[in-house]
Computed example of a mutant assay.
Amino acid sequence: MNKQVQVHGALFLVALIYGSNYSIAKEVMPFYVGPFGLIVIRVVSAALFFGVFSRLVVKEKIVGRADNLRSVACGVTGIAINQLCFFGGLNLTAPINAALLMVISPVAVLLFSALLLRESVGWRKAAGIAVACLGALLLISQSGGESATGNMLGDLLIVLNAVSFGMYLVLVKPLMQRYKAITVVSRIFAVGAAIVVPFGWQQLLTPNYETFPISIWLAIAFMVLAVTILAYLLNTWALRYANPSLVGAYIYLQPVLAILIAITFGKDMFTLQKGLYALLIFAGVYMVSRTRQNLGKGV
């Protein structure tokens, strides 16, 4: 299969998983598990999985002071701050607010790419980001699937999450040039787990897990296996062949897929207007993906 098709397929699956997570996570928290307790379950489970898998299969280590410091920075931005702010914010605000604010992440990716990787920001890439962002903003603003008005603190936490994730995408790119994906992900989850446990330990011990219905256990399993493990692996693998800006641009697909999921469960209606806004998003992602040196070994 063509490498470009594989990369776009992986990024689309990540967008689908993340788009589903907005609604699924709200089913679990805060009634069953607090947001920080849920983070501990996710991050520690993933850290154990990646740690064991890395030692048994890959047997590769990150070497050198610079790469080790970069991996710690990736753990702080891509796991600790990202997870704590996202679930803390989503717990307070409405899913539609969270999806709307997440579209600023590619802006952060462009900024940090220019500053840290010396990546040029040409007119075509900037135009693609603008078109996709416009489509996402119009689409979400017209969605009637969520009636909650949101929360200022929750919205601010989602913004911080988006910026942190944008920085992570840029920081992790050089590591992906030198190490296998599982090696990088194993390290950053180990760093993230060490940071989030003190924040969520009390919330982890509070729930009465014996009373959880099977649907909540399935939701938690989805967040651990799909949202945490599979999505991070696919995202990190894709960064070996794609610019951080392309990976960030796929965030625009999350609101589209979230609305399609809502339609499937009878929580929203599809209109021509929404279809046109979705086309703007796909057009913007295409413009970014066609930018010179987007795919391949070069940055």
Rank of each mutant, 00 (worst) to 15 (best):
A181C: 13
Q4S: 11
A238R: 01
V197W: 09
A242L: 08
Y32A: 10
A94V: 08
G64P: 05
S120L: 13
G88R: 14
V44M: 05
P35C: 10
A47V: 09
F270S: 06
S54K: 10
S23F: 15
I216H: 06
R187N: 07
Q6D: 09
A162T: 03
S147F: 08
L156H: 13
I251L: 05
D155M: 13
C85P: 01
V7A: 08
S289V: 07
P106M: 07
K180E: 13
A47R: 05
A46G: 13
M223G: 04
P30Y: 12
A249M: 13
A226F: 15
N2C: 08
I195Q: 04
F112Y: 08
V14P: 00
R240G: 05
F87Q: 13
A10S: 11
I158N: 01
R240N: 06
V196C: 05
L138V: 11
K61V: 07
T77S: 15
S245E: 13
V58H: 10
L110E: 03
T93H: 03
P174G: 11
A15E: 00
G89C: 07
C85H: 02
L246T: 05
G284M: 02
V184L: 05
V57E: 08
Y22K: 12
K61R: 14
S113G: 06
C85K: 12
S45A: 12
A162W: 00
K173L: 05
S215N: 07
F87L: 15
F212W: 08
P174N: 10
G192H: 05
E146K: 13
V28F: 00
V159R: 02
T291W: 03
V58C: 06
A73K: 14
M29D: 06
T291L: 02
G19M: 04
R124D: 08
L160T: 14
P244I: 09
A47L: 08
W237R: 12
L272S: 10
V58L: 08
A15V: 14
L233I: 14
I158D: 00
V184T: 07
V224P: 04
V285I: 10
